[in-house]
Design a protein around this nucleic acid. Structure first.
Lengths: 158, 158
DNA sequence: CTAGGTGCAAACGTTTTGCAACAAT
DNA sequence: ATTGTTGCAAAACGTTTGCACCTAG
């Protein structure tokens, strides 16, 4: 739980504990992710490591970040590759998302509407917020068999 | 051009009030969005309208949904076209997102961690949730000039 | 030696764009 | 008549994949 000086060592241990190979690329990518404080994209990580590891490929960065995410060693902040989905309801509300089938349900709750961030940075102009609840809808939970933590969600109905 | 509740009429009025042209395409797309209860993607809206409006193009659906979103007549549920962004912090936390520059800050708050949806559908297996606060960071708020409601967020730093 | 990670280039699906034709005001 | 929208096709973008090679265990 320290790691500002040698975050790579933590990673190596974690990977070994998980039976996953420890590679130079993984150490470098994890080190960069630890160092970064701006939630970088795969492309950003690749760009930043470019000087020191000219042979590191973007595909490896993608695969590695996905692996970290799957292994619980990093977290995906947003849902990439998701189609834009629209709602005619513009009144403030929140969402309940099935991670397996992608179904989205509306959640109306004034308690959630009233949330405020603790200690907002001075000068930040807050314009809104939304709460995303994730999980498995009744149908998908019954079927089971969904590998969690893989993708945030998949598709909507035709 | 009817539909039982005549949602098209609301749209026409709203568009006129905003000085925006009222077209058949806009009425149809809005009608479909109102009718749908599953937060459809642009592609889904296009597919569903295909029978009745064979000449309607997918590009128009994209442009129209974006326009609606910008005008406050529809809401974008997720962030499309966003790059996947990662975080080395896997401990539960929330985010504060600048809609102009895309900067993401971490928000730690046990009160937010403890949120629960009101009346969860029976059988839904909740696995987690996160709160996204949106707004303008101090730097962007100072500069002003950002047209809100446009995109959810844009880019991260190099 | 073997499992699986890596690099490359091509493929993918979604979204955006340039532009000419067109419709709404 | 002017302005903004539409449709088309092509391009852009982030991401994923197939496969040969390489590397850690």
């Amino acid at each position: 739980m320290r790691g500002q000086t040698k975050p790579e060592l933590d990673l190596a241990g974690a990977l070994r504990a998980l039976g996953a190979p420890v590679t130079q690329q993984r150490l470098a990518i994890y080190g960069e992710l630890r160092r970064a404080k701006d939630h970088p994209s795969a492309e950003a990580v690749h760009r930043r490591l470019g000087r020191r590891f000219p042979s590191l490929s973007l595909a490896t960065v993608y695969k590695t970040l996905q692996a970290f995410s799957r292994l619980g060693l990093a977290a995906l902040v947003n849902a990439p590759r998701a189609e834009a989905r629209y709602d005619a309801i513009t009144r403030r509300h929140h969402h309940l998302i099935c991670e397996a089938c992608g179904r989205i349900a509306d959640v109306f709750d004034s308690r959630l509407d009233a949330l405020r961030p603790p200690k907002l940075p001075p000068g930040f102009k807050l314009s809104g917020h939304s709460v995303h609840f994730r999980g498995l809808c009744p149908a998908c939970a019954r079927r089971g068999s969904f590998v969690a933590r893989q993708r945030t969600y998949i598709k909507e109905e035709r």
